[in-house]
Amino acid sequence: MDMQKGTPQDHEIVLSVEDLTVGFGSKVILDQLSLDVRRGEILGFVGASGTGKSVLMRTVLRLLPRRSGTIRILGQDYDQLSEAERTALDMRLGVLFQHGALFSSLTVKENIQLPMREYLDLPQKLMDELAHLKIALTGLAPDAADKYPSELSGGMIKRAALARALALDPDLVFLDEPTSGLDPIGAAEFDELIAQLRDTLGLTVYMVTHDLDSLFSVCDRIAVLGKKRVLVEGTVEDMLAFDDPWVQSYFRGKRARSIVRTEDARP
């Protein structure tokens, strides 16, 4: 989350994936995949179940090994960094896992403070304030701070996990299905929250999602994964114009049509 002088639209590439190949055993999941994410944008990532969206995200986060290809995050290639530089790079990434992955034995506040304690040299009072600030920013009630994850509802877990992902003020945030399991109103609020945080904190957001509403309402660009690589990336209009049966049925299906129609009807 850099408030660097200069507009966010200067098309700096924050995450670049080149010729990435990932496979398990004899099975190739991603083949020569390339993808760019620009600073300040919200990139929505879609694809049929089982095409490797999660594999790609986990590979970028180095939770899975890759066969070939380079991944540059914030202009840096992880393989060429020293231990200290890797840590510095890790601090600038935030991840919201699909099921929250909050530490169940810590309260929400302690969850948020864990990376702060580990990496920052701030007094406890300021860390407390910052934790409460993140809780407020993500729209959680203040009394959620001292609750344990098992006492939270699904939507609150997502928000708490987002607050933890934002604990160190990252530049790049990975969201894995952030609105899955939320009711439409909660999901819309969450979308708005992400857009708002992008604007205020200057985040770049990489969002894996199946939620058509999120794709249409907050995503600046959409990338579609299929046939082991990125089939197409671009705006909603590009998706609608792209000639591929899966993309067509996804963006022109019954569920999508109603959204497109209401979007068009808006002044």
């Binding site: 408030m3 409460h132 407020a136 920013l137 200057g202």
Partner: peptide, 18 residues
């Protein structure tokens, strides 16, 4: 910068002391 203004403006004045 506008971004700074937005960020500082978005923060609450004080936190509800919990």
């Amino acid at each position: 910068t506008p971004a700074m203004k937005e960020l500082i403006g978005a923060l609450p004045d004080r936190l509800e002391a919990v």
